[in-house]
Design a protein around this nucleic acid. Structure first.
Length: 782
RNA sequence: GCCACGGUGGCGGAAUGGUAUACGCGACGGACUCAAAAUCCGUUUCUCGCAAGGGAUUGAGGGUUCGAGUCCCUCCCGUGGUACCA
């Protein structure tokens, strides 16, 4: 290794700190560009080599945009609420805020050692009361708008983390964090009505530039399905109630089904209820006696009671069910009586919890019908409108998306800023009394009864009502860690404002984020929440744009060298600190970009890293022998400028690096290059290897920092060659090469091609066709 | 099952319908050196050939085209998402 990376890295990092050269300017006349990377959770393990992949790529973009004259905001902060700090506190008794501060300091040190051009003056921390004051303020806006509501609901409960989870946090029936299978619990929870925004969250995707797979995943998650609700009247009455023909809530004695295929209504031969359906409960209770097989049905209900959702929704399992004997439903289109079944493949919380079965058209219905010998009839389809008319149906749209379960029964999160007053009910803490700070506790342990540790602190819980000053109790649940990250991009815009989360002017100038990068795993979590949150703020008039992120990209994982996931337990995690110490920040940065396509997972290879370091050493040696330059080298430089620029814009960082390498090879073969060209090359190299670029820039006797230079622009004239290589084919097969003047006439080119000795051998028969592709090839068809 | 994206040398990978295998790694040979490291030069898809040159080749098979890794169809395999969602 030739250059002293340790000295150089430290020198230029210090210079960037002193000059604050990467600070975004407020009130600038310049055009803005807001580049955002997902801020990390500052874990005790420190930075993982996967973090810099996203950061380096966007750092390159940010650096290029600055050199192109834009006012760039490229900030960094800490998404610091969360379980690891809390679990550490449980183990050691050290307050999470202390551990969090230490971890943040370590993360910041690590990031600075890689030389990212973050604007450190805008650093934020979601656990800082000055920050979460506004998270709480925003929650109160949801509350005041009626979008935050407390409801008893069946929720997902993680028995290990001892907290409720949102649907988005359940992956394959297990807790997204710890992998423990979730349980169902009935619990009063704060919910946020994200479903009210379901349509807009889908429809507005057309206005943003996200990778198609990201849009698709969001659409699928929201799961809009358009269909109809149709009532099926019943042949029986619940005796002996007076309101015998009414349902338990006074509704008509009918089931409502949701279907996406009302056109199959004539083929319906039975209906199926979810076991949890109210009618099933009524039919089997002690008050009623309408079933011929009540005991059988009760036994079935008992048998499916304990089944977890994950089993229940496993399509591979054979479906089970039981008929409600003695009762019938009426097909509204045909007037015919059809049997009623109960089966646990019907879910209570989707649609209406009742399904109309059309074995003729639906595979699942057919399988069920065959198993239980239910009728399968052949009936023609009718149009949507006709079906609705005939069956008195109504158009209806259903969503897979559920409201956002917002309560967590843990300590290390933002307290939900509400009190419950005996007189006034739930009351929001007034703005001027925010934040509701997390009190110190002695025991952080979550409880098995589903109460937050905060509930044990009487001095916190017992308070007065802000409205009537009467006795009130504080909400003790905290917010999910997705709360602080839902709006953090807004705080970077004006991080020290204590009058508002950000000033109107600053918001107007900086929003939306122009380019946002993060993991695919956040597509249906953070990204969805954040879009929703921003839309709400937009509706309330607090932010100027409906969509927070104009463009979203996503990076692939960095895998271990054997292609498996890096994990602490396998001991194959690459620590960026060690790489920086041994090979330098520039080698790490450039290698991470070079290793493969940005969006794909790629295995780590230390040999590959060494190869990139060799390239940087070559650049350094090149600086030693500047002088005369051949026209070939000049031309190669301008082609490189062109390609590197295009590649960065197109997120093809791997080929951008290979273009830089190609140029260095050409320059090396060419003997030497001019000072001027080398300076241009350094500006081109600087987003990738900023430390070395600055060092060589200084050695060259140039003033200022390389970051202050304009981004080089290729001279068009130098992109065109005087002489070009032409490929000669016969019947599509390569038979010869020609070097000809660039502006050669087709006829002349054909003559030259025909004269080629090797081509002649193949031009045996009659030439049927001569194809000339300008600047590329000649093809003879014989 | 459905949806999306992939499958290219020994490896990571490159290729607006126009020379497939750029760039990097690894390997082999050579120069320099007492020697090694570093560096430099050369070879490196497979195959036939002393060579000139030929043949094959982008998961498999078909098709469109003067020309297909690239477009279309069928299939196989992999990765990700999603799933009794009615």
């Amino acid at each position: 290794m030739s250059y002293d990376h340790k000295g150089i890295d430290a020198k230029w990092q210090a210079r960037w700190d002193e000059t604050q050269i990467f600070a975004a300017k407020d009130g600038s006349e310049k055009e803005k560009f807001y580049v955002l990377v997902e801020f990390p959770y500052p874990s005790g393990a420190g930075l993982h080599v996967g973090h810099p992949r996203s950061y380096t790529a966007l750092d390159v973009v940010a650096r290029k945009k600055r050199m192109e004259g834009m006012n760039v905001l490229f900030p960094m902060g800490w998404d610091a609420f969360g379980l690891p700090a809390e679990n550490y506190a449980i183990k050691t008794g050290v307050h999470p805020s202390i551990v969090t501060r230490e971890n943040i300091d370590n993360f910041r040190r690590q990031l600075k050692a890689i030389g990212f051009s973050f604007d450190w003056s805008r650093e934020i921390d979601t656990t800082d009361p000055k920050y979460y004051r506004w998270t709480q303020w925003m929650f109160n806006q949801f509350f005041k708008a009626g979008l935050a509501y407390k409801a008893k609901a069946t929720i997902n409960w993680c028995p290990k983390d001892k907290t409720g989870l949102a649907n988005e946090e359940v992956v394959g029936g297990a807790c997204e964090r710890c992998g423990t299978p979730v349980e169902k619990r009935e619990k009063e929870q704060w919910m946020i009505a994200i479903t009210k925004y379901a349509d807009r969250l889908i429809d507005d995707l057309k206005d943003v530039d996200y990778l198609p797979k990201i849009k698709k995943q969001q659409e699928d998650w929201i799961g809009r399905s358009e269909g109809a609700e149709i009532d099926f009247e019943l042949s029986f009455t619940f005796k002996p109630e007076a309101n015998a023909n009414r349902g338990p809530n006074g509704e008509k004695a009918a089931f409502t089904v949701f279907t996406t295929r009302p056109d199959t209504i004539f083929g319906v031969t039975y209906v199926v209820l979810a076991p949890e359906h109210l009618w099933v409960k009524l039919a089997t209770d002690d008050q009623h006696d309408v079933l011929e097989n009540k005991e059988e049905v009760k036994a079935y209900l008992e048998s499916v009671k304990g089944r977890a959702d994950i089993d229940r929704t496993n399509g591979e399992k054979e479906k089970t069910g039981v008929e409600l004997k003695g009762v019938k439903a009426i097909n509204p289109a045909t007037g015919e009586e059809i049997p009623i079944w109960v089966a646990d493949y019907v879910l209570p919380n989707y649609g209406t919890g009742v399904v109309m079965a059309v074995p003729q058209h639906d595979e699942r219905d057919r399988a069920f019908a065959e198993k239980y010998h239910l009728p399968i009839i052949d009936q023609p389809l009718v149009s949507f409108d006709e079906a609705l008319k005939k069956a008195k149906g109504r158009k209806k749209i259903n969503y897979r998306l559920r409201d956002w379960v917002f309560s967590r029964q843990r300590y290390w999160g933002e307290p939900i800023p509400l009190v419950h007053c005996e007189k006034d009910g739930w009351v929001a803490i007034p703005d001027d009394q925010l934040p509701v700070e997390l009190p110190n506790v002695e025991k952080y342990e979550p409880t098995d009864n589903g109460e937050s540790p905060l509930s044990a602190i009487e001095s916190f819980v017992n308070t007065t009502c802000p409205t009537c000053s009467g006795p009130a109790k504080r909400e003790t649940d905290t917010m999910p860690n997705w709360a602080g990250s839902s709006w953090y991009f807004l705080r970077y815009i004006d991080p020290n404002n204590d009058q508002a989360f950000a000033s109107k002017e600053a918001l107007k100038y900086w929003t939306p984020v122009d380019l946002y990068n993060g993991g695919m795993e956040h597509t249906t979590l953070h990204l969805l929440y954040s879009r929703f949150w921003n839309k709400f703020l937009f509706d309330q008039g607090f932010v100027p744009t409906s969509e927070p992120y104009a463009r979203r990209h996503s990076h692939g994982l960095i895998m271990a060298d054997d292609g498996t996931k890096m994990s602490k337990s396998k001991g194959n995690v690459v620590n960026p600190d060690e790489v920086v110490a041994e090979y330098g920040a520039d080698a790490l940065r450039t290698y991470i970009l070079f290793m493969g396509p940005f969006e794909e997972p790629v295995p780590w290879s230390t040999n590959g890293l060494i190869g990139v370091r060799r390239f940087l050493d070559k650049v350094e040696r090149l600086a030693e022998k500047l002088g005369d330059e051949s026209p070939e080298v000049t031309k190669a430089l301008h082609k490189t400028i062109q390609k590197v620029s295009e590649n960065i814009d197109g997120f093809r960082f791997n080929t951008a690096v290979s273009e830089l390498m190609k140029f260095v090879n050409v320059a090396q073969e060419g003997g030497s290059m001019s000072q001027d060209s080398f300076a241009k090359f350094l500006t081109l190299l600087s987003p990738f290897a900023p430390h070395l670029a600055n060092e060589l820039w200084e050695k060259l006797g140039m003033t200022g920092l390389v970051e202050e230079q304009p981004w080089p622009v290729a001279e068009k004239a130098l992109l065109v060659d005087d002489e070009i290589k032409i490929v000669v084919q016969v019947n599509g097969k390569l038979r010869g090469n020609l070097v000809v003047p660039a502006e050669i006439k087709d006829a002349e080119l054909i003559e030259l091609a025909k004269a080629d000795e090797n081509v002649k051998k193949y031009l045996t028969g009659e030439i049927k066709k001569e194809i000339v592709v300008k600047g590329k090839l000649v093809n003879f068809v014989v």
